[in-house]
Design a binder for these strands. Structure first.
Lengths: 246, 246
DNA sequence: CACACTTAGTGTATTTTTTACACATACCAA
DNA sequence: TTGGTATGTGTAAAAAATACACTAAGTGTG
């Protein structure tokens, strides 16, 4: 196999959002620092999923590749939201020997192109070939490696902004979902409470939300009707949408 | 002066939008190709305003610097919208010797971080130290250098999207403007006609639009009242705004 | 099998926003 | 004085947003 060339100082980093336990969660990877002589673990850390970009792929290709290597998932919602480049990008790592280390010169800085992805937490196999990944609730994220805290913050801003104007809440749910689940996603992402009746009245107008002849199973209460999102209907109707603020 | 180091394969490119003659315009720079022996001009070309990023500045710093070097303007609206990296980025330039040439290896590709800027065309001195810049109406942009057509397209998309949800139309106008001018900006950017009375009713609700005790001068008709945008009022009231689409 | 528990699902009245639409006004110039 | 031109304004009807509370349909338990 011919080795692909890559640019050492550009990478994509992906903030993978999931929804679980009524919270927005982020999939993070454990990075391990070992003592060189004793071989004992000295320190662990959490990072976003990221990697270099090969010279023969577009930025989006690289992001899909990175996401696939991490989650085994294809065809998921992925969006580029911002590029980052802090001069002190790697400073705090200078003297450390990480087991999972990207081998870059810590004196040079990295340009990181930030993506966020929305996936249904049910879909994902969390253990992959490249280290252990964990779902961490947004509220419990501590200090991450590199400038990843800032990237997560900006990703959340971008997500909030996007979800206000485009129907992407579904992406955090399984294919079939109930209206209560959908409402919860919006509440969690936006950090607001929404009125159940008004929420339903509003989405009732959206043609792309398809009610199914199927109900929730295995719940100890009245089972809710299931719904699906129709991308086709959405693409057709979105041209009609037009709202603007002066 | 100590030379600053830079990364040769990352640049910022800025799509500078202006509004004039009831059209959206883009400020483009002429690039000149000369015949090496005869010294005659063989070919000219238009490019966006762009440059490398120094190792000691953030991406935003670089973009402001580039914009300042081109326009002499500071404190203008500038927004990062997308990063670009096409493997064939420089292919079509391979055999050419450009007068204004960035000296990069045309076999390697460049990652370009795209910004768009909104400025009032009245503010700008079009001739600067780095080549001749021209305002070109969006509708008359032909084939640009590199992948700059794609960058302009995406910038326009980003601008349209942004102007629908945030009050940035003012940025294309002088500090004091009439409501008709503002309406025209929206019509031109969004490519729609808007009803005058409804437009005024709508912005009448926006507190950040401050009517002045001043009128247009030198027009051969009833002079219109002038208005200003108040960033302060906007920052205060925008927290109250909340709209979302399911 | 009846009762308790839990979440699903629904309607109405009020206010606000959107939409469609036409004419008098103020200034300049000839 | 008059003609030209862009400004500035109101209303009625439809649609959307908001605030608000009870019945329905299942499961599990005694």
């Amino acid at each position: 196999m011919i080795p692909r060339t890559l640019n050492d100082y550009i990478s994509v980093d992906c903030v993978i959002f999931g929804y679980n336990d009524n919270e927005l969660q982020v999939l993070l990877v454990e990075r391990t620092l070992t003592n060189e002589s004793t071989k004992e673990i000295e320190f662990t850390d959490l990072t976003l999923t990221g990697n270099h970009i090969y010279e023969d792929e577009t930025i989006e290709d690289a992001a899909y590749r990175v996401l696939f290597d991490r989650t085994g998932l294809d065809n998921v919602y992925l969006e580029q939201f911002k590029a980052f480049a802090h001069p002190d990008r790697l400073k705090k790592d200078k003297d450390r020997k990480w087991l999972i280390h990207d081998g870059r010169d810590p004196d040079k800085r990295i340009i990181s192109i930030g993506f966020f992805s929305l996936i249904s937490t049910r879909d994902i196999i969390v253990e992959s070939k490249c280290g252990i990944a964990k779902w961490i609730p947004l509220s419990e994220i501590g200090e991450l490696a590199f400038d990843h805290n800032q990237i997560v913050d900006e990703a959340l801003k971008a997500l909030r902004n996007k979800i206000k104007h485009e129907p992407i809440g579904f992406e955090l749910l399984p294919e079939k979902f109930t209206l209560t689940e959908l409402q919860n996603v919006y509440e969690v992402v936006l950090g607001t409470e929404l009125d159940k009746r008004n929420f339903r009245k509003k989405i009732g107008r959206m043609k792309y939300l398809i009610p199914l002849d199927e109900k929730q199973k295995g719940v100890a209460h009245k089972p809710a009707r299931l719904y699906m999102f129709s991308r086709d209907v959405y693409e057709k109707t979105k041209k009609e949408m037009f709202d603007f603020t002066v």
